[in-house]
């Protein structure tokens, strides 16, 4: 059994931006439940924000993900409580497969941020004014690069560098390349087994296996 995996270090993400405006955008909006009836995540990208992008007859509605100018964007700029609601990892998976590598927002629902981290996607926060300015700037400069420096907790765009916040644990995990926890935790298997033996409710058969 090999549990050796190479976990890339995520210190920087850069690319052009795409603004997604609105507070409390829940995971049902990011990926409607009917697209979750799949056994792999491949191909979820085209369904990101589906109901906000298409009407009942599958005609395109106005949405940044439909706009030509944002098709190559990889840094998404959102408002507050983004990703609330269902814990479905399909949501960040859909965004990642659409092309998103980093998200900057006012705040994120906790499970959503955790799910992003597990994919190596930073969720960086700043106050609402900063976010709105950035969204407006992206709107005017859809092809210009935004650089997210996870280690330094800064975002650089249009020749300006601003301070942002990256949760400490998240920053460390991304920067040190330890965000893929499976390999990390597998290496403690002996201690895990000991824990199992100590817990009164774990059957002896498990504890001795």
């Amino acid at each position: 059994m090999s549990d050796e995996v190479d976990i890339p270090e995520v210190t920087h993400e850069s690319g052009s931006g795409v603004p997604i405006e609105g507070n409390d955008i829940d995971t049902d909006q990011i990926i409607p439940a009917r697209f979750m009836k799949v056994v792999t995540f491949d191909g979820l990208g085209e369904f990101a924000f589906f109901d906000l992008r298409f009407d009942d007859d599958d005609n395109q509605k106005e949405h940044p993900f439909n706009e030509e100018r944002y098709q190559d964007s990889s840094v998404m700029v959102v408002n507050s409580n983004f990703g609330c609601g269902s814990s479905r990892e399909h949501a960040p998976q859909a965004l990642m497969r659409w092309g998103i590598d980093a998200i900057i927002g006012e705040s994120f629902a906790e499970i959503f941020a955790g799910n992003c981290l597990a994919l190596g996607i930073p969720t960086v926060t700043a106050d609402s004014e900063t976010i709105q300015e950035l969204q407006a700037w992206v709107d005017e400069n859809p092809n210009e690069e935004i650089d997210v420096d996870i280690e330094a907790e800064t975002v650089t765009y249009g020749g300006e560098t601003i301070d942002v916040t990256v949760d400490d644990a998240q920053r460390k995990a991304l920067v040190d390349g330890i965000w893929d926890t499976t390999a990390l935790m597998k290496s403690n298997a002996g201690e895990v087994q000991k824990k199992a033996e100590e817990l009164p409710y774990v059957d002896d058969s498990t504890a001795s296996s």
Partner: peptide, 17 residues
């Protein structure tokens, strides 16, 4: 509740970060 990558962690290690 946990996400799919965490499910993977729990399946593989019996633990969670």
């Amino acid at each position: 509740g946990i996400g799919t990558s965490q499910i993977r962690d729990v399946l593989a290690t019996g633990t969670l970060a």
